[in-house]
């Protein structure tokens, strides 16, 4: 398929999703963290609000239940464990595939 058609299709999908996102952002209180946003929306319904879409000053933070529950260390340990298992499986798959190729 011609490239301009592909990117036009992708742009159309993005346009619909961004429009829905902007409506949802304003309709559910504007620049609110999710906990407050959803609690308000589910308790009191739609409430218009504004604010910036991006707030770089806040930085990237670990999800509230983990941070407030003092489980950052457990979270870090789990991530390390999963990454180690993932890399281990990758190495295993590479070797296994090499052996398979040699046998064939």
């Amino acid at each position: 398929m011609e490239r301009w058609k592909q990117y036009s299709g992708l742009a159309a999908v993005f346009a619909v999703a961004v429009a829905a996102g902007l409506w949802g952002f304003r309709a559910t209180g504007g620049s609110l963290p999710w906990a407050k946003r959803s609690a308000r929306a589910l308790q009191r319904g739609i409430e218009e609000g504004g604010g910036s879409l991006i707030d770089l000053g806040r930085g990237i933070i670990i999800a509230g239940p983990i941070r407030k529950g003092g489980m950052v260390l457990e979270f870090a340990a789990l991530v390390v464990l999963l990454v180690a298992v993932g890399i281990g499986l990758y190495i295993y798959a590479e070797r296994y595939q090499d052996t398979e190729d040699e046998t064939a």
Binding site: G21, F25, G29, G30, S31, L32, P33, W34, R37, G51, L53, I54, D55, L56, G57, R58, G59, I60, I61, I62, A63, G64, I66, F75, L78, V79, L82, V83, V85, G86, I87, G88, L89, Y90
Partner: peptide, 20 residues
Amino acid sequence: GIGAAASFAVFQLNLPVWGG
């Protein structure tokens, strides 16, 4: 394995976009 690790890690990180 790698996908699960990446997905789990990114699940827990709150980005300062669209309110969080």
